[in-house]
Amino acid sequence: MELTRHWRLHNQRYSLVGEQCDRCGARLFPPRDVCPECAEPAQELFTFSGRGQVYSYSTVYSAPEGYQEYAPYSVALVQLEEGPMVTAQLTDLGDDKPEIGMPVEMVTRRLRADGDQGVIVYGYKFRKHVKDII
């Protein structure tokens, strides 16, 4: 079991909490404490909106240990509207086929079940974003 490893990341997994660089203003997800753009400290917390668009996508048929019960599933690189890109699954697609450029929003879902020990890992996935009704 890897309880602490997953617990430690709950702000990232449930709320997309990243960081912002004090110097150049770059928004960073995942948080990394040192800005990759200017190598200065970047420790100010920044919570991402969870909205973005699909940069690329694929389907996993032959899944790694712990994910087989979900296969086949869609995976994607999602470009967040604030800049960074994240790797995540696409969910709630129904009959829709993913597309490059498709607008998506973050939702919280079960990522994996750690076998019989029952440690379930939750985290972000992305679903198609339907335009806000005004």
């Binding site: 690329s56 389907t59 996993v60 599933y73 490059i100 994996r112 985290g123």
Partner: peptide, 24 residues
């Protein structure tokens, strides 16, 4: 491990993400 593999991504899927974007 914390930000790629935990999402169930495989080496083949990573190659696929790059290939699809390249084709696009």
């Amino acid at each position: 491990a914390d930000y790629e593999s935990v999402h169930g991504i495989t080496a083949a899927a990573l190659g696929a993400l790059l290939m699809r974007r390249y084709m696009h």
